[in-house]
Design a protein around this nucleic acid. Sequence first.
DNA 1: GAGGATCGTCAGTGAAGCTGACTATCAGTT
DNA 2: AACTGATAGTCAGCTTCACTGACGATCCTC
Lengths: 149, 149
Amino acid sequence: MTDDAASDALASRLGYLVKHVQLRLAEASALALAPFGVDGRELAVLVVLAAEYPLSQLEAAGRLSVDRTTMVALVDALEEKGLVERHRSPQDRRKNTVQLTPTGQDTLRKAEHAREEMERQFLAPLSSSDANQLVRALQTLVTAPQTLG
Amino acid sequence: MTDDAASDALASRLGYLVKHVQLRLAEASALALAPFGVDGRELAVLVVLAAEYPLSQLEAAGRLSVDRTTMVALVDALEEKGLVERHRSPQDRRKNTVQLTPTGQDTLRKAEHAREEMERQFLAPLSSSDANQLVRALQTLVTAPQTLG
DNA sequence: GAGGATCGTCAGTGAAGCTGACTATCAGTT
DNA sequence: AACTGATAGTCAGCTTCACTGACGATCCTC
């Protein structure tokens, strides 16, 4: 009874729901990606680097909406693992072009496969049409113009 | 073209979507709650305390799935603002019962109203049936048993 | 009343992300 | 060609958040 009152009070709160979905997803992601030695953020970097070439660190940061100083640490980690290589751009020597090594491409392929399987399991409690609609709704919210104030 | 490739590669990633929805929501929430001097986490504490009384710090922490050491800091902040009061429980003197002050109840009422309006605006890009279904899907995912491994 | 568990508290730790400052480089102007 | 302003990468330092481990106070069971 009182439990229900508290549950109800939280269960409809968007902030609570999104935060906890995120926590659960992060946990499942860490577990699924652990065998490949990368985390979700690093894998996302590999994805954007593979999708477009060549990409500077700043451009990659822009694709992921992360700070350029954050990207430095991400590329550092990936480089130490031998998954990417930095090269000074000949066209603009301020920029680093970052490209995947063969190992990086291999890791990307396997880790992406594991991520897809993890997401499938994560969405398993939903019907496939509900799952699709969830993804579409999230895309809409992320893409929608910010209406602040 | 290449932009689309990168967008596509990210747009369907659940981790990316949920994380960025969470970031946007946190931003909107901070803006909406700023006038009341509380943040989303503090408001959630007020909600569970108002829904059930009396609640110890540990019980409140359990309702929100936060650590008890985190709850200490949250109650500290709320107490400093005069929104809650700690009282040693007479039944079990290890426990603090935490109750809302009149100011706390007033703040809760107003801030909850603002939060609801913020969520309405946040979900405005979706049809109302899509919004309802999104909330239901998130509830399902949060409630579903963890299938780790 | 002795031993083990529970609650609140605090100090320290780690991850994530930011700001600000610095260097190197580029582009446009004169 | 030199000067100016902007840009890319890097680094140090800071903030926030949440955790672990330890501690004292209190409770419960035997």
